[in-house]
Simulated scan of single mutants.
Amino acid sequence: MTRITPLSQPYPDALAAALNALTPDGGDAPMLFRIIGTSERAWQKFIGGSLLDKGPLPIRERELVIFRTAARIGADYEWGMHATLFAERCEIDEAQLDALATKDAEDGGWSVADTALLATVDILLDRRHLSDEEFARIADHFTSDQIFEIVQLVGFYHGLAMIIGTFDIRPEPGTPSIPA
Results as ranks from 00 to 15, higher is better:
30 P>F: 01
164 I>Q: 00
31 M>G: 01
166 T>H: 08
172 E>V: 12
127 R>H: 13
11 Y>Q: 00
179 P>V: 01
104 D>P: 02
38 T>D: 00
99 A>S: 15
125 L>S: 07
173 P>I: 09
157 Y>S: 03
152 Q>P: 04
111 S>L: 10
37 G>N: 04
157 Y>C: 02
152 Q>Y: 14
121 V>K: 05
88 E>L: 07
178 I>C: 03
84 T>K: 11
105 A>Y: 05
89 R>I: 15
116 A>I: 12
5 T>V: 11
33 F>V: 00
137 R>Q: 14
144 S>W: 13
167 F>Q: 00
114 D>H: 15
19 L>N: 04
13 D>S: 06
46 F>Y: 15
15 L>Q: 04
2 T>L: 00
21 A>I: 00
28 D>W: 01
12 P>L: 01
83 A>D: 07
19 L>R: 00
124 L>S: 07
97 L>Y: 05
123 I>C: 11
147 I>L: 08
61 E>D: 15
152 Q>H: 15
34 R>H: 02
121 V>P: 09
151 V>H: 05
149 E>H: 12
66 I>V: 15
123 I>F: 07
109 G>P: 09
102 T>P: 03
1 M>D: 09
179 P>I: 01
58 P>G: 06
134 E>N: 05
174 G>A: 05
35 I>M: 01
70 A>W: 06
137 R>Y: 01
171 P>F: 02
14 A>Q: 08
117 L>C: 10
53 D>C: 04
177 S>K: 11
99 A>L: 07
175 T>V: 14
142 F>N: 04
175 T>D: 01
8 S>K: 08
29 A>T: 05
93 D>M: 03
23 T>H: 02
140 D>C: 11
18 A>Q: 10
67 F>D: 07
